[in-house]
Amino acid sequence: MHLILFIVFAGLCLAGALNLLLQKHPINSALSLVVVMTSLAVLYLLLGAEFLAAAQIIVYAGAIMVLFTFVIMLLNAGREERTLGSKAAVALGFPAVAAILAVIATVILKAQDLGSVSLSDGITSTEELSRVLFHELLLPFEVTSVLILIAILGAVSLARKGHGDQEAGK
């Protein structure tokens, strides 16, 4: 059971990620990313992180991806154009990625006593999580709220109608 669930949703993850790379239209890529996020939420559940699974759906899939979709719609982003491209990106980047993957994979595969996951390992309750969050890590929590405030301010000021005109007028 566990295995089937894992394979299905891991497969969905990978498929969505690949689709993200291969689609020409950004909206298709955005929708593929939603698929990835949702599959990941299920995987979190399989790992016993119920709060995170919910947060993943609500925040990532429900807010961030919606924001992406709004922007794509706003900017009327169409199919990707042919541009000059960068030779360095291909010549240097792919081998680099391959190397990164190879190193990490090697380390993971060579590692011993990693253990395994099973469904009966228990779920981390939200109460447990919030206890740690609001007792020990209260300060970071508050700081993140400030961070979000700053992000809001930044986003509003950047995206304002007058901002672009200011640049053109100088």
């Binding site: 566990h2 295995l3 894992f6 790992l47 993957l101 993971i108 990693l114 253990g115 395994s116 996951v117």
Partner: peptide, 12 residues
């Protein structure tokens, strides 16, 4: 019983 390494490989 999924080995942990599968999750990690997926993540990578």
């Amino acid at each position: 019983m999924i080995p942990l390494s599968w999750y990690l490989l997926l993540s990578a």
